[in-house]
Design a protein around this nucleic acid. Structure first.
Lengths: 232, 232
DNA sequence: CGGAATCCTCTTCGATACTG
DNA sequence: CAGTATCGAAGAGGATTCCG
């Protein structure tokens, strides 16, 4: 029973929002669902450490608040999946912005933190700059060693990301996570990393440069990413 | 000792951000400081229910993370104030967006919730649409019964908000909180409320309409406010 | 096997009291 | 005024068990 519904009791949009999504794990559940519907088990696996009871409670509360819905997949799958409602999806820009802000807090190395390919998809979506993608029609494939392979399809300001390799990528970038991070921070250069054999790149130099620009990479001044969250 | 620093242990910007600002009360402390520097006592008073030890812990952690700084005011005041650092200020758009999203969750009546004029200032800042304010140079004064009086100075896409009455307002709007809310929701009209004596307005009808448009009032379709958080 | 409820321990929160 | 100290209550985390 998580019906205690502790509230800040303040008449303010921020505190009301935090009454609903401010508890531990809640926004991470939302983050997972931004990448598409997921089963209970998927969430429990990815959100390692959440504890099965707490996940159940969060899902129940989110559903009660109208942020997520549960749907039964048609046979033969037949499993239940959770997905964001339209109202829940309105949190997307907020979660994206949190992700961009949190970029600066990422450790330079993976260390003992967990990581998975879907978070890379999320990062691509969160750091996508539509204005930079105008007129571009390319497919970028990203490989983090053998931990993850994803690809992003850019079509004139629109973005679609998927797990797995692309069929006809215009660019393939393959590098360990640490190298990619150092690049986004401007602490190293592609040329240097290529020479050291830590970065393998298939495709034109121009496509590579577009990739970094479109996804708010090293090309932009430090901090430009998080201050770019603005109202239309 | 709040040095346990529980972390989600995920290599993802969102979870890193929540490691830092995801704990209870933390973003509300940030919200308070967005309106300017505040003393410990001010924060403790406004964030009713936080408990003094927890406030101290949050301030300590936020300072350690570089989000806020503490400064000693020059004599004769001599008191210590907390204020956002540049890094902390980068959370502004996120907190604004949370506030806009949370607007839909506000109860129709104040009830037993607490309220203060500074949150009205915050709401004005959060719902300000710069694009709508282009070419406008006006001062709006807002009175919520006798609970709060604030004013907003719009200068061609720029906004400054202050507590208290304005010196030469172009528009004065005086109404109970519930009426103002019903208006923003489109559940009533200014004409109706004026007739019922619940809304007193000094200034031209045009200024009044600009006010609503600039601050994302009833004029916009439902939901337009929260979906308007986008990347530049 | 996916989707939980239960139990138990540990940490955090909230309220009050107390101190420089 | 600006905190620290204390302590009961609530929430989180982990393991195990239960149900379909």
């Amino acid at each position: 029973m998580s019906n205690s519904k502790r509230s800040y009791g303040q008449f303010c949009g921020v505190s009301r929002a935090l009454d609903v999504v401010g508890e531990r794990w809640t926004l991470l559940v939302v983050r997972e669902l931004i990448m598409g519907p997921r089963r209970y088990k998927d969430l429990a696996d990815t959100l390692s450490g959440i504890g099965t009871n707490l996940l159940a409670a969060r899902l129940r509360d989110l559903e009660a608040q109208g942020l997520i819905g549960r749907r039964k997949l048609p046979p033969p799958a037949g499993s239940t999946v959770y997905e964001l409602t339209a109202f829940g999806r309105e949190l997307e820009p907020i979660v994206f912005a949190l992700g961009r802000w949190g970029r600066k807090l990422l450790a330079p190395e993976l260390g003992d933190q967990i990581f998975n390919g879907r978070w890379l998809l999320f990062a691509l979506k969160a750091n996508f700059i539509a204005a930079q993608a105008r007129g571009v029609r390319e497919i970028y494939e990203l490989r983090i060693g053998d931990e993850a392979t994803v690809h992003a399809e850019v079509r004139d300001g629109n973005l679609e990301v998927r797990e797995g390799p692309a069929e006809e990528p215009d660019l393939v970038v393959d590098a360990p996570l640490e190298v990619l991070l150092a690049l986004t921070r401007g602490e190293t250069t592609p040329a240097k990393e290529r020479k050291a054999g830590r970065l393998v790149q298939q495709g034109s130099r121009e496509a590579f440069e577009r990739f970094w620009t479109i996804f708010d990479g090293a090309g932009l001044p430090r901090g430009a990413s998080s201050s770019a969250v603005a109202r239309a």
